[in-house]
């Protein structure tokens, strides 16, 4: 009875793992296969598709644009969301329910709806369809990913005692935040920053609708290639997957062992 149960469990887990990794492994292999449409394994291997991708004039442009948008969202998180979260935790606890609500809202607003709302309201130059509008939308959409881990870390440490001791020693708010609080909540800040980076880097909807062709990001180029050249699309997908892997592994690494990152990802969702 017990044994049957565990065999059933292992079969379930096995199918789950296959379901999760086959699409990824197949994409990695497809991106280096010379020809792969009649047999189970590719007939040969090549890096030509990567060469074609790198040589495409839009490759470096879209990659740069994606990095600009992702880093801007991370910076906004670090210099805007983190201080606000700290301030609310220590000085205005009565604002915490409001902050919690504002951080849940982005999950209730589908990206297409946010894009539509921003486009309708900001239909004048120079904001209309600008990278600035895209970045602002990305900050709204990604701020819960920064807020959750930081807020959890702040609750885990004794913020009040730390703040008061620092105040007694003559530190100002800026010094307290940067030299006392930030080092203590560094794992939260880092996993928040990496989550923001990874989600904004992969963001397609806002970029496609707000800036579109005038400021193409990496996922836009990828979608374009899925319709034009599957091999190059595979190479671009691999680059995209790799960025996501690196960010996720870094999150697991900075958060240390245990289930913490899982909780943060869940809470952020």
């Amino acid at each position: 009875m017990k044994k049957q149960n565990s065999i059933f469990s292992l079969v379930l887990i096995g199918i789950f793992v296959l379901y999760m990794i086959i699409p990824i492994i197949a994409t990695y292999m497809f991106s280096i296969a010379t020809k792969w449409d009649v047999s189970i394994l590719p007939e040969g291997y090549t890096l030509d598709w990567y060469q074609t991708a790198f040589d495409h004039p839009y490759f470096s442009i879209t990659l740069t644009n994606s990095f600009i948008v992702s880093f801007s969202a991370v910076l906004a998180g670090l210099f805007f969301i983190v201080p606000t979260t700290y301030w609310v935790h220590t000085r205005v606890p009565s604002a915490k329910p409001l902050l919690d609500l504002l951080m849940i809202l982005p999950f209730g607003i589908p990206a297409v709806v946010l894009a539509l709302a921003l486009i309708r309201v900001y239909n004048f130059q120079p904001v209309a369809r600008s990278p600035f509008l895209l970045i602002s939308g990305c900050v709204i959409f990604s701020m819960p990913f920064m807020y959750r881990p930081v807020s959890n870390s702040l609750m885990a440490i004794d913020v009040h005692t730390l703040t008061e001791s620092a105040l007694n020693l003559g530190a100002n708010t800026f010094q307290i935040l940067v030299r006392v609080i930030a080092p203590n909540i560094m794992p939260g800040i880092l996993s928040g920053a990496l989550l923001v980076f990874a989600t904004v880097f992969a963001e397609f909807t806002l970029a496609n609708l707000i800036t579109g062709a005038s400021f193409k990001t990496f996922p836009l180029l990828l979608v374009e290639f899925t319709k034009r050249d599957g091999r190059v699309a595979a190479a671009l997908s691999v680059i995209s997957f790799t960025v996501a892997w690196i960010a996720s592994l870094a999150i697991l690494w900075v958060s240390g062992r245990g289930h913490k990152p899982t909780e943060e990802v869940v809470a952020a969702h």
């Binding site: 992969a202 990828l222 899925t226 997957f241 990802v265």
Partner: peptide, 18 residues
């Protein structure tokens, strides 16, 4: 953790590949 964030264009393309 990793796979739940693999949505969007690259995921869709991976399914076309398989």
């Amino acid at each position: 953790d990793v796979t739940t964030n693999f949505a969007g264009a690259p995921l869709a393309f991976a399914f076309i590949v398989i």
